[in-house]
Amino acid sequence: MHEVTITSGRNMHLIDPYLTIWGWEIPVYLFLGGLVSGILFFSALFYLRGKGDQYPTMVYRTPLFAPFFLALGLLALFLDLEYKLHVFRFYTAIRLESPMSWGSWTLAVIFPMSILWALMHLHRVYPQIRLPFRWLNQGIAFLNRHARLFAWILIVYASLLGMYTGILLSAFNARPFWNTAILGPLFLVSGMSTGLALNLLLARDHREIRLLSKIDVMAIAVEIFLIIHMFMGFLASTQIHIEAAKLFLGGPYTAEFWILVVGLGLLFPGFLELLEISGRRIPRQIAASLILFGGLLLRFIIVEAGQYSQWFSW
């Protein structure tokens, strides 16, 4: 036997018996960050390919939501802080070793960029709306003249945002379930998939719906590959990583992860999208809603399971 007991009476708030430092705020932010990353990435990508008129939802309409989602995500992050008055401290230091510092500076760039990108295309979706202030109109006209360069930068920052949400967690060596390099690409692809799902929900043109379904099926396939790869990596690693994987292979997260996230959030909507591609008319809202639900739940489960997994078990 090996039994470790704290005998001096330790039951600290948020720490014992296992970490609960990050509640709903962080998974909600990770979800919204990933969603915005997906929205902006595909908008900029298809804009650069000159497909704005062919796929107006993806390129022009959905990005109008991006600043609002990102603002909600930032609000969630703010609510998570225990010392809210010190929020400005994120922007008084550049800490190259800290993924959270990278993330806060990335957000400082991509949040204003998402607002500008939405304003740049507002007139295409709502031609009747006129922007106030001469300087604002001049600024947006200037950006529209350099829209291709703007789109390239947006692609880079959208990818950084999507990837960072996973790297933030994977950098914590102390939490075995988070400590896998797969989380970065997994959250990136999952963010892309949720972005596509929101586009799917809003799209009206059948040709656009088919394209979105095609890309999303590929994203789902990559996501499933990464999930399998993640567990293979854990099982081939040290005992603490094997114990972390067991949380999902017979442990407390098994049913909700494999049934709700993988089954209902990936495989089933992927199947519906395949039917859509093959020409059958399936209500696209079902697949899109399930993917969004699966993406949110994936983050909730991973954030909680990471805090549950530890080096000690007392």
Binding site: L19, I21, D80, M100, A174
Partner: peptide, 11 residues
């Protein structure tokens, strides 16, 4: 300088 982000606790 602490914001209470709790990253250090997780680490």
């Amino acid at each position: 300088k602490c914001t209470g982000c709790k990253a250090c606790i997780a680490a």
